[in-house]
Amino acid sequence: MKYALAVYGAASTGQSSLTALSFARALLVSGHEVMRVFFYQEGVHNATSLTSPPQDEQNLPEQWQRLIAEHDIDAVVCIAAALRRGVVSVDEAERYELSASNLREGYELSGLGQLLEAAVEADRLVTFGD
C-alpha cells in the first residue's frame, strides 16, 4: 500500500519524530511504499543539517536523512513552517538575504498542497504529532 506520513514533532519536543521514523522503517520492511513524508510544524526541525548531539545520543535528523536517501523517499518540508522556524535552503537564504542555509540534502521545501495531495492520494495517511 501507499503511505503518506505527516511529521509534526522535532527530536527535542517529544517522541513523535522517533515514532514516525521507526514506523517508516517498519513500513519499508513490510514492502509498503512511503510515497511522501511531509514535515510540518515543529517537524521541520528534522530537516536541519546543523544538529550535533553528543556522541552517545542519536541524531534523528541524520537518521531521517539516511532512510530518505536509501529508499529515495519524497521528503517535503513545508516552506512557510520552515522559514518561520529558521530551516532554509540555499535558494531561500539568498531570496531573504539570510546569513546561512541549513536544509539537509534530499529534502525539498514546498507548499502545504503537497501534504493535502498526498493525504488523498495515499491509501493511508498517518499523522505523528507531539
Binding site: 510540518y40 498542497g113 501534504l115
Partner: peptide, 20 residues
C-alpha cells in the same frame, strides 16, 4: 499556543483550494 491552531487552519484553507 505556538502555531498549532494557525497552521491547522492553513491546512484547511489549502485543502479547500485543492478542491478536496
Amino acid at each position: 499556543r505556538g502555531q498549532f491552531a494557525k497552521e491547522a487552519l492553513d491546512a484547511a484553507l489549502v485543502s479547500a483550494t485543492y478542491d478536496i
